[in-house]
Simulated scan of single mutants.
Amino acid sequence: MNQRIGYIRVSPDNQHLDLQRETLKKAGCRAIYEEAFSGNSRERPKLEQCLRELRAGDSLVVWRLDDLGRSLSDLVMTVESLEQLGVGFESITEQIETTGAAGKVVIHVFAALAEFRRSLIRKQTQPGLAAARARGRAGGRKPKLDDQQVREIEELLSNPDMRVADVARRYGVSRTTIYKYVGVVVPQH
């Protein structure tokens, strides 16, 4: 039996679910999962629970597209994973339904736009990185220890009574950083 299952997401400061709930009920949803969280939150337990319940032939129904995805690429990935499971997707407000050809085309356009956006970001980032390298700047974090400090640490550790933990504390770094810079073998416990 194919079922329609609804999912509603609202931000914690906007708890008005009545319109969304009624709309999903009118759309034939037999179960509706509701969740309140901020858009930045990675944890969406109700959505995960909802997705686990869906079977091939079912449809996931949302009130708006942004209920399902935090970003365009997130939305596309979720809808594509539904498609692979044989589950349809419907957004009532945007009138998109992936069980039909027109809805599938819209999702593919969204996927192309998401990929285009990623490509644009890469293209805009590359010249900046190249210019920084030309000026002698390497990417990544600034080194924790300079060459002089590394030489001092090597000299300190040449004393068998000197403990790595004491040297690390003196230079304000972790023992792991000391091991990384001076090649000290990590003691086995």
Rank of each mutant, 00 (worst) to 15 (best):
I32D: 00
S91A: 13
D166C: 09
V105S: 09
Q49E: 14
A111M: 15
L129M: 14
E80S: 06
R135A: 07
E35D: 05
D13C: 08
N2K: 11
F116G: 12
I121G: 06
G100H: 15
R42T: 11
L54V: 00
R42L: 05
I153R: 06
A114K: 06
G172D: 06
A27S: 08
K142I: 08
C29G: 02
V62Y: 05
L47G: 02
L60T: 03
L47M: 10
R4W: 01
I8Y: 02
R70I: 02
W63Q: 07
A31T: 12
D161S: 11
N2F: 06
R70N: 08
E48M: 07
D58R: 09
F89S: 08
S38Q: 07
A165C: 06
A36V: 02
I5W: 11
Q126V: 14
R135D: 05
A111Q: 14
Q126H: 05
R163K: 15
T125W: 04
K46R: 15
L17H: 00
D58Y: 11
G183T: 02
F89V: 03
Q126L: 12
S41Y: 01
G28W: 12
N159M: 10
L145R: 03
A31R: 15
R135N: 04
Q124N: 13
E152I: 13
D166E: 15
G39N: 10
P127E: 02
S81G: 07
T99L: 15
E90V: 12
G139L: 03
R137M: 11
A31F: 03
I121C: 06
R135G: 01
K142G: 05
R135E: 14
K180A: 11
Y181H: 09
G88C: 09
A131M: 01
M162F: 04
R170V: 00
G183Q: 04
